[in-house]
């Protein structure tokens, strides 16, 4: 496997049994390759399997069949008790709904990822402060998520995703709940980070976001389009 391939997925399939007779095929043999420094978008209509693919690539779910490698390591059927290490150290998540822990401050939310990544207490606090500055929130570090705007919350989520220097950052509709102006700000932050060498795979149906990406992967009915 080539050195700079971060994610390599071949023939990924996934079905969901909705009832005894109703089986929904979410993925029907998807192939995908993400290289270091990529800034790719997965686009497609609703129900095409974007989110399922995202969950499988983020080791939140297992494929029924196919192969999945992250940084050259076969993670296809990794059990949850082992997958958390990869999730903590190699994958960063940015969600549509920000998904910050409401009881923690912005800084503590970022620090938490460092804790799960195995960083020492002082180091993770220093790094989190540095990242909060990077996303322009140094003056909002001690605010709870409920005291931040949507754009600010998403910036905290970006800082959290960067905490353990992951090989891949998965973003699921990162601008889905933001207005146009704030969406643009977030896209610019992501682009800036990509220029600094971060690898992004963004699931979106926002064409502005897709156009900002260097590469586009289209899905249709659970297949590569």
């Amino acid at each position: 496997m080539e050195q700079d391939v971060v994610v390599s997925a071949k023939g990924l399939t996934k079905s969901y049994r909705m009832s005894k007779t109703n089986i929904v095929k979410a993925l029907c043999g998807v192939n995908i390759e993400v290289r270091k420094g990529d800034f790719s978008a997965i686009i497609g209509p609703s129900g095409c399997g974007k989110s399922t693919l995202m969950h499988i690539l983020g080791l939140l779910d297992c494929p029924d069949s196919g192969e999945l490698f992250i940084d050259g390591e076969d993670v296809t059927n990794l059990k949850d008790r082992n997958a958390y290490k990869i999730r903590a150290q190699k994958i960063g998540f940015i969600f549509q709904g920000f998904n910050l822990i409401p009881t923690l401050t912005a800084l503590e939310n970022v620090v938490l990822a460092g804790k799960y990544g195995g960083m020492k207490s002082k180091a993770r606090k220093d790094k989190a402060i540095e990242l909060m500055k990077l996303v322009g929130l140094e003056d909002r570090m001690n605010h709870k998520p409920s005291e931040l705007s949507g754009g600010q919350q998403q910036r905290v989520a970006i800082a959290r995703a960067l905490m353990n220097d992951p090989s891949l950052i998965l973003a699921d509709e990162p601008t889905g709940e933001l207005d146009t102006k704030t969406s643009l700000e977030i896209i610019n932050i992501l682009k800036k980070l990509n220029k600094e060498g971060k690898t992004f795979l963004i699931v979106t149906h926002n064409m502005e976001v897709a156009e900002a990406c260097k590469k586009t992967i289209r899905l249709r009915d659970g297949n590569n389009a």
């Binding site: 290490k85 999730r87 903590a88 969600f95 998904n99 990822a113 799960y116 959290r160």
Partner: peptide
Amino acid sequence: EIGIKKAIGASG
């Protein structure tokens, strides 16, 4: 929250 924590790397 449990989902978020596990997604960002919390072990069981």
